[in-house]
Simulated scan of single mutants.
Amino acid sequence: MIYLPHVILVDEQDRQIGTMEKLEAHQRGLLHRAFSIFILNEHHEMLLQQRALHKYHSGGLWTNACCSHPLPGEAVEAAAHRRLVEELGIDCYLTPLFSFQYRTVFDNGLTEHEFDHVLLGHYSGPLQPDAGEVADCRFLSMPEIDYLLDTMPQTFTSWFHLAYPMLKSYLNTQIPVQVPSN
């Protein structure tokens, strides 16, 4: 028997209303809980990940450090730490920042409809990306990211186009916080 991961279905207030196999939730376009992790290094550069080419949507596109879904019964922060280790071979202190909802319909008929929790971490050590999840990764300055978004917007995921400006706005309005070192 093959295990197919399940996602947590939620209402508009992020209250759990059920669970469903991940692919079916994307086929039916149902709202489900997700998270997006942004990582900054000591130079205030942001870690970008290029999704593995074989992903069933957005393969080969650039996005934030790590994105995924908590499993049924798993807290968002616990899932975020789990996926950082699984995808990038790292872990770091994460600060929950904000959440937002979005819906994107892909050319292959799948729909990403997520209540997305955004977390921020700081990390400057080596990366050990899982080739099954990540095609490439790199740290870039925000001006470099802005330039790429302006000149090659099609190379980024739909949720990055939404979350990145919100993160920049958040960072510009917040008092810097001391985070524990790695």
Rank of each mutant, 00 (worst) to 15 (best):
I8C: 09
H54N: 06
G109K: 12
Y123N: 04
A65L: 06
S181C: 08
M20C: 10
R33N: 05
P153H: 07
P5A: 09
L140E: 03
P126K: 12
L9A: 10
Y147V: 02
P126L: 14
L53E: 10
D136P: 02
Y93H: 11
I2Y: 12
R33L: 15
C137W: 00
E74S: 11
V105R: 12
I90R: 07
D107H: 05
E45C: 08
H113A: 07
L97C: 15
F98T: 07
Q27D: 00
S36H: 05
Q13G: 00
V7C: 12
Q178I: 12
L110F: 12
M1Q: 04
L40H: 02
V105N: 06
V10R: 02
A25Q: 13
T157P: 11
P153T: 04
S158W: 00
D107N: 09
I39P: 05
L84W: 08
A79E: 10
H54G: 08
G59M: 11
R103D: 03
F100W: 04
L84R: 08
I90Q: 11
Y56V: 14
F160H: 03
L9F: 05
E77S: 06
F35P: 09
I17H: 06
C66P: 03
F156L: 06
P126S: 14
G121P: 04
Y93D: 09
T155C: 08
A79N: 07
L140C: 08
L9R: 11
I175T: 12
V105T: 10
Y164Q: 04
F156R: 05
Q154Y: 08
V134N: 01
E133M: 04
D136V: 01
S99L: 05
E144R: 03
P129G: 10
S169W: 00
P176L: 04
P180W: 05
T151S: 13
H32E: 09
A52S: 12
A25E: 09
L119E: 03
Y93F: 13
I37T: 01
V85T: 15
L94A: 03
T63H: 08
Q13H: 14
Y170F: 14
T151Y: 03
D14S: 14
P165S: 03
F38W: 06
I90H: 07
V179K: 12
M20I: 07
G59I: 08
V134D: 01
I37Y: 02
E114F: 06
L127C: 04
D14W: 03
F100Y: 15
L23G: 03
Y3H: 14
P165Y: 06
P180M: 05
L30Y: 13
L120Y: 05
H44M: 14
P72T: 07
L30D: 05
P70T: 10
E24R: 15
I17R: 15
L4Q: 15
E144S: 13
L119V: 07
D130A: 09
H57Y: 15
A52P: 02
S158L: 01
M152Y: 09
Q128K: 10
G89D: 06
V179L: 13
Q101V: 10
M1F: 09
T157D: 10
A131N: 02
R15H: 15
Q13S: 14
